Computed example of a mutant assay.
Amino acid sequence: MNDDPLAWLVSLEGVPSAFAAARDGIDVVLRDRGLRRTSPGTTAESLLRGAHASAVLEGSASTLAEVREGAGDDVARDAVRLSTELLGLVPTVRSSPLQAFARLHAVAASGAVDAERLGRPRDAAAAERLRGLAAVLTAPTEAPALLVAALVHAELVTAAPFASHNGIVARAAERLLLAARGVDEKSLVVPEAAHLALRAAYESNLRGYAEGGRAGVHAWFLYAAEAFAAAAEASPLRRGAEQDET
């Protein structure tokens, strides 16, 4: 009997090869652009770009230049504030995913919702969904780390377990899992920018994940592999990436 809770996802046609190709692309960018020589400033730039893209997906009208200057709107400021704390949660998400998710929401939504709602599930059903997700994350699995990150992303968006900022929390959690599971420990790829560039497909596939049964779930993971490949190309390590900052 297979006790791996993600085995059925790994068995979906085309999913293992798609994630393997995406991981190869990430590894090439990190290796070829000198991962060992990167500075904290490169990580900070990646996090800033990700925060801006995530905010735009959440409805922000701020430009990257405005966000870089600290002049973005409330949604952008929330996303940036979360990005500054994100990597500090790597040990927490490894050992206590529920605590990490609660902290992500508490940081992102600070000042936007009542203090007693920060980091708390909005109802019993949301709490149960979060517990189920945490159980999956702490169970042994042979699923690739990219698949795990994509699963967390989709679950947090579609369950919308918190009172606000669920999209920002979900995209931050995806990036956090990439760091915690060894794909991108210095957080140099920018999955949020990939989702923004692929926005129509991103939003369509999230709806499919929520409403489309097994076929919708399958489509989401194939999309996610495509997005992770694009995330590598959006990294500030990529030569000429600064030209994309419009």
Score class of each variant (00 low, 15 high):
Ile26Cys: 05
Ala160Ser: 13
Arg122Pro: 00
Thr246Ile: 13
Ala61Arg: 15
Arg129Asn: 09
Ala172Trp: 00
Asp114Thr: 13
Val190Glu: 14
Ala102Gly: 15
Pro97Phe: 05
Gly25Tyr: 03
Leu87Pro: 00
Ala234Ser: 10
Arg31Pro: 02
Ala127Asn: 08
Phe101Pro: 01
Ala224Tyr: 00
Leu188Val: 07
Asp244Trp: 13
Glu128Tyr: 05
Gly132Thr: 11
Pro5Val: 09
Leu188Thr: 02
Ala231Trp: 00
Ala55Arg: 00
Ala44Gln: 12
Ala18Asn: 03
Ser17Cys: 06
Asp244Cys: 03
Leu130Glu: 04
Leu87Phe: 10
Leu237Met: 15
Ala126Met: 13
Pro121Lys: 06
Ile26Ser: 02
Pro5Leu: 14
Thr158Ser: 15
Ala55Trp: 02
Val169Gln: 04
Arg131Ala: 14
Asp244Ser: 14
Ala106Phe: 01
Val90Lys: 06
Glu66Ile: 05
Ala108Pro: 05
Tyr202Val: 07
Ala197Cys: 10
Glu192Lys: 04
Ser110Arg: 14
Ala18Ile: 01
Val93Phe: 06
Leu87Val: 06
Ala230Glu: 13
Leu147Tyr: 01
Val28Gln: 15
Leu198Glu: 11
Phe221Asp: 03
Pro144Thr: 13
Phe162Gln: 02
Val15Arg: 02
Ala229Lys: 01
Tyr223Arg: 03
Ala44Asp: 11
Glu13Thr: 14
Arg207Met: 08
Asp73Gly: 14
Arg175Asp: 04
Val152Tyr: 05
Val67Gly: 00
Asp4Ser: 13
Gly72Val: 04
Leu156Gln: 05
Glu203Arg: 13
Arg214Val: 15
Thr92Ser: 11
Leu151Phe: 10
Leu237Cys: 07
Ser62Pro: 01
Phe101Trp: 14
Ser235Lys: 02
Arg207Asn: 09
Ala79Val: 11
